[in-house]
Amino acid sequence: MEILKKSQSGSFESSDIIILIEPVEPNSGRNIDIDSSVMLEYGDTIKALITSKLDSYNISDIHLIAKDKGALELTINARLETAIKRACNIQKATMH
């Protein structure tokens, strides 16, 4: 799937994560910046969640920024899914 536009999801609140996505040049790969208040302990887990979500949407070229404030796994997945759907213009039946 192709990233068509910039998108954002989540918030700066504690126990949440903010995800920013922007399109990049074709074939420039994935550029993922993660920053977390629990980086040492969970940085790799967050990275793995992002990678597997991008894999499942077949996204190979993307710039993704994640600022985490201790979000749970399901929150991270939900925020990722929303940001990706917004960026790919495939979000349905929700208000933007």
């Binding site: 910039k6 954002q8 918030s11 700066f12 609140e13 504690s14 903010i18 920013l20």
Partner: peptide
């Protein structure tokens, strides 16, 4: 409270559009 992050989230969301 969450008031601070509510304000900043809203403003950056609009700014980054």
């Amino acid at each position: 409270t969450t008031a601070f992050s509510i304000v900043v989230t809203y403003l950056t969301d609009k700014g980054l559009e």
